[in-house]
């Protein structure tokens, strides 16, 4: 049980190293990349470019440049933006991370609960009106872009009907750290999480329904029926249990991506200074240090989430345990 976990941790380190090298090469070694003037920003004076060259050791061989970059990113953590003078990149990303993490974790909780509920109900009532209604509803959910839904929610809760009793609890847009006020933290996150989750609820509900319906055709379901086990137990303990394996795969990919900054549109609509927003701003300003830090941060999260999913596999699928 421990060995496969260690093996996956090892894989994770190797993947992270590979990604960091690749990202570094893209920005530093591609012909015409001119890292010094990129880092210095548009319309930089020659003095600034010279300062960048010195600070990043750009007159030295590539491997040394890579090490200097990694040291600035991970050890001294003093990578600064030249476009935005004095802007410390790492603390900015570190401050943004909990915001994105809260948003995505909250959304994930919502979409897992409702996705499971919809998938199981639809499969249990396959081909009845309940199934059809749930499937149409999830299709509508998938079709609504999260940013549009967010904007509509804001329209109602922030301006038009804000004083109406139904929405009077909604705090102003923005983020409140948990340590300052757990209640406000939760309240500010409810609507952003919900609007981010809606599309995923639809996707997970549909995927799970399809998986359960397929699993119900398996021979082991017939065996369970022949044993005299009740239909509801067959659905939950046999069909749902085996269907969870593919849902967990999907979840690892989605969660990793979202934490890595894919939730940018939701963050912008709800004025959350998350990782997506920081990456977005970095790209707008062509601010290379910010982009590098953000890209590596998202890669780190995708890798961590996938490693966690792999470990979750070991837990839920006994067949994964022996190949260690």
């Amino acid at each position: 049980m421990l060995l496969p976990v260690l093996k996956r941790l090892g894989d994770m380190v190797v993947a992270m190293f590979g990604i960091s090298v690749l990202v570094f090469l893209i920005f530093f070694a591609i012909p015409g990349a001119e890292p010094a003037s990129r880092i210095a920003g548009r319309n930089a004076s020659p003095e600034t470019v010279a300062a960048v060259r010195l600070s990043f050791g750009l007159d030295q061989p590539l491997p040394v440049q890579y090490l200097i970059m990694m040291k600035k990113l991970f050890i001294t953590q003093d990578l600064t933006s030249f476009v935005n003078r004095g802007y410390k990149v790492i603390p900015a990303v570190m401050n943004a991370a909990p915001i994105t993490l809260s948003l995505v974790a909250g959304a994930a909780l919502i979409w897992i609960v409702f996705g499971l509920l919809i998938g199981v109900l639809a499969a249990a009532f396959k081909n009845t009106w309940i199934d059809r209604l749930l499937m149409v509803m999830s299709l509508i959910g998938i079709s609504m872009p999260a940013f549009w839904l967010g904007a509509v929610i804001n329209l109602f809760t922030q301006s038009r009907w804000h004083d109406y009793w139904l929405f009077s609890w909604v705090p102003p847009l923005g983020y409140k750290p948990f340590v300052e006020s757990p209640k406000l933290w939760a309240l500010t996150l409810v609507l952003p999480c919900f609007s981010l989750a809606v599309g995923y609820i639809g996707i997970y509900g549909r995927v799970l329904r399809a998986n359960i319906v397929e699993a119900m055709q398996e021979d082991y379901i017939r065996t369970a029926r022949a044993k005299g086990v009740s239909e509801s137990r067959i659905l939950i303990r046999h069909a749902l249990r085996t269907s969870l394996i593919s849902v967990v795969t999907l979840f690892g990919l989605d969660f990793g991506q979202l934490v890595g900054g894919v939730a940018v549109l939701t963050e912008i609509v709800f004025a959350l200074q998350g990782v997506g927003k920081i990456t977005f701003d970095g790209l707008l300003n062509l601010d290379l240090p910010v982009i590098m830090a953000a890209v590596l941060y998202s890669a780190l999260f995708v890798v961590i989430c996938n490693a966690l999913v792999d470990m979750l596999y070991i837990l839920i699928d006994p067949r994964e345990r022996t190949d260690g």
Binding site: Y220, K227, G228, V229
Partner: peptide, 25 residues
């Protein structure tokens, strides 16, 4: 039927590779 199936009439299927749920002992 459920109280008869498995208790009074039991069944063995053709393919033992697929007739057991893979995730339980």
């Amino acid at each position: 039927l459920r109280s008869i199936r498995g208790r009074e009439i039991a069944m063995i299927f053709q393919d033992p590779m697929t007739s057991l749920t893979p995730v339980y002992t």
